[in-house]
Write a protein that binds this DNA or RNA. Sequence first.
DNA 1: AGCCTTTGACCAGCG
DNA 2: TCGCTGGTCAAAGGC
Length: 527
Amino acid sequence: MAFLIVYVPFAIWWGEMEGDIAMEEWKDSNHRGADYLMTMPMQNFLADAFPPPELLEGEGGFEKHGLSVAVGSPPPTPPPPEDGCSPLPLTPQFGQKFGSGGGGGGGSLADRRARGGFSNVARISVPYNQPVADVSSAGAPSPYVTIPPGLSPTTLLESPVFFSNAMGQASPTTGKLHMLGGANDSNPIRFESPPIEEGSGAFSFKPLNLASSQYAAAEKTKSLPNNQHQSLPISVKTEATSIQTAQDEAAANQLMQPQFNGGKRSRAAPDNGGDGEGQPVEGDAKADSSSGAAAVAVVAAAAAAVAEDGYSWRKYGQKQVKHSEYPRSYYKCTHASCAVKKKVERSHEGHVTEIIYKGTHNHPKPAASRRPPVHPPPPSPATTTTTPLPPGDAQADHAPDGGGGSTPVGAGQAGAEWHNGGVVGGEGLVDATSSPSVPGELCESTASMQVHEGAAAAQLGESPEGVDVTSAVSDEVDRDDKATHVLPLAAAAADGESDELERKRRSHTHQYHCPLCSFHGIAREIV
DNA sequence: AGCCTTTGACCAGCG
DNA sequence: TCGCTGGTCAAAGGC
């Protein structure tokens, strides 16, 4: 089946967060490829959201604002985030023993290796440490985040994750671009319906950088003036079996707001692989966020949405997969008649590197009641600061349940500051601002995150700070899971994968930055 | 008591 | 047919 893949990169901001976040690199102007195929039947959602490739290319590529989303298969149902909390990955999975490999405990050597978890260690840092600048320059592919089935591409696109505010920056993905046309004329990209083909779309977000780890971050901070953030790659993929309709939007809407209210996390830990799921971004966000409370909320919601879909999930397995550095956790929707499943890969640090949804929820999200109560975020000092929170620490609560976590706490309240990757193309920033709270999964440091109202401001006419959204069109052709699989940017770069691959990967991508949390997100279209 | 996570084992697909 | 790999099951235990 087709997948909707979303890559959400986490980035860590080093140094100033100001609006400067230039995501330049993100865009890959050259590669849009003819491949830009949006074959998914998601047209419904995406139609507006994605600009035609041509448009994108206008600027050498893609970088226009907005996300590009590829929809592969039937649009996933957008799960409204219910739980207010998004789980943050607090607990690294380092010593964790990974689920049984096929062989189970006694299993084959391979299994043992996999389970050993040892292997992971070596690999862990790779993706995260790379400085953004490098990445961008390198064109490193970013990791992705998959969009939950519950979320419709549209939702994602509009979600705060990608855009600073609910209003949503105009972006191909958001589908709002077309609306913004006037405002953002500068943007090359307009959202006319992008060429989307049914059946094969893929929507993905990739994490750009990899320096998610605090450790690395700390060091880099000093050294990297410009490269202020490192990102952690997160990919989210969704395989949707059915098409979503209004439901998605509704869900999206729900995600946007309610979530933030909840303070308490639900138990379920959706994305987390069981580790802690994300915790709602609380706290700090508020500090600065004041400026964009609303926007923040939205953003957070979006983030949450990505990270958590608002549904309740039960983890039924974990396993180290060969192609992935990190263990993959398997979740099922706890709803009686719902067969939706999702696979979540988390880094040892607890960052979600990839989420793959399979199926579509055939039921409404869990009652709001489950949403975590809002926890007042502890004021975090460094709201804007780059100091990355320790993965675990930052989060106040994580909202576990799949849905759970959808939102982080107070997301609305929390003001996590997000920057969307500006258009790399060098165009003006599109600001999107970020969301206050990001689901832990997506953003570890959510607590500290603040939201810039950039996006909102943008709409308002204010210039967004640092939020850049980049979109690129890519040639990407991969459809299968592997194809969708996200490689850490750093790794990719290091590996020296062909430029093309990276280009492809980056194509149709949009970047997002969260100054505080280092969350970088990239949406990528996969055909 | 219910729900969830953990994790070894089992199963199916593929080369 | 075998081995590898990914996905799922289910017992045990925790909250």
